[in-house]
C-alpha cells in the first residue's frame, strides 16, 4: 500500500510537471512579443499588424460566429473598436476554427455576420490554423492586448473582455477597457490576465 501511495505520488508529480511544461509551451505569456501575420479579411484583402502604421497597439480577439459565448460578446467587441480604434488600439478579430468542423464559420458566414452586425473591425480567418496556436488561444472569445514597442508587439493582457459573459449590462469590471486605458495613460495594468469561459477552438 505504501509503495502504491509513493507510486501514485510519483505519477502525480510527473503528470503535474508534464502539465507545467505544456502550459509553458502553449503560446504567449504577458510580456512576450507576439507574432505578426498575414490573414485574409472578409473583404478578400490580406491584413497584417504592420499595416497599421499609426497604431499604438492592438486588441487581438479570437472569435467566431458559432460559439454562443462569442456571439454574446459581439456587440461588446464592436464597442471596443468604436471606442479605441481612433485612440490607436483597433480590434483585430481572428476566426480560428477549422471550417470543415464548423461550416458556420466559413468565409461567407463571416461576411454575412459582419454585415448583419455592422462590424467596423477586420474579421480575419486563420485559414491554416497556424496563428492561434502561436498565441496560445484555446477558445472563443479569447483576447490578446498588444502594445507596439521597439521590440515588437508586446502582450500586455490575456483573457476575457469583462467579468460577465451573460449580460453586458451587469458587467462590474471591464478588463480590456481598463487595460487599454492604463496603456493610454502610461500606467501599469492592474489585472493583466483573466480566465474566460469559451468554446474550444475546433481543429
Amino acid at each position: 500500500m505504501k509503495t502504491l501511495k509513493l507510486f501514485s505520488a510519483l505519477v502525480l508529480v510527473l503528470t503535474l510537471s508534464a502539465f507545467t511544461i505544456n502550459t509553458e509551451d502553449k503560446g504567449y505569456n504577458v510580456g512576450d512579443v507576439a507574432t505578426d501575420f498575414s490573414l485574409e479579411n472578409i473583404d478578400g484583402k490580406m491584413v497584417s499588424l504592420s499595416d497599421y502604421k499609426d497604431a499604438k497597439g492592438f486588441i487581438v480577439t479570437f472569435t467566431c460566429n458559432t460559439c454562443p459565448y462569442a456571439v454574446a460578446y459581439e456587440d461588446r467587441i464592436e464597442a471596443l473598436n468604436k471606442k479605441y480604434a481612433s485612440k490607436g488600439f483597433p480590434v483585430i478579430a481572428i476566426m480560428p476554427n477549422n471550417i470543415d468542423v464548423k461550416p458556420g464559420d466559413n468565409m461567407k458566414s463571416m461576411q454575412q455576420r459582419a454585415k448583419e452586425k455592422g462590424f467596423t473591425f477586420p474579421y480575419l480567418m486563420d485559414k491554416d490554423q497556424e496563428i492561434y496556436p502561436q498565441y496560445g488561444a484555446t477558445k472563443t472569445p479569447h483576447i490578446y492586448l498588444l502594445e507596439k514597442t521597439d521590440k515588437g508587439n508586446v502582450v500586455k493582457y490575456i483573457g476575457a473582455i469583462d467579468d460577465n459573459y451573460q449580460d453586458a449590462s451587469a458587467v462590474k469590471e471591464k478588463y480590456v477597457e481598463n487595460a487599454v486605458d492604463a496603456l493610454l495613460k502610461g500606467e501599469a495594468i492592474k489585472v493583466n490576465e483573466t480566465r474566460a469561459i469559451g468554446c474550444s477552438i475546433k481543429v
Binding site: 502539465f19 477558445k139 479569447h142 476575457a160 460577465n164 459573459y165 449580460d167 451587469a170 480566465r195
Partner: peptide, 29 residues
C-alpha cells in the same frame, strides 16, 4: 455564475476556460 475569472481557476488552475472540460477525482487524487 458569471464571475468566470473566479471559478475557472478555482475549478482548476490549468483550465483556460474552454469547453469541454472534465475532472476525475477520488478523495485527494
Amino acid at each position: 455564475d458569471t464571475d468566470q475569472n473566479r471559478w475557472i481557476p478555482a475549478i482548476n488552475e490549468n483550465w483556460s476556460g474552454a469547453l469541454p472540460a472534465t475532472i476525475i477525482y477520488r478523495g485527494n487524487k
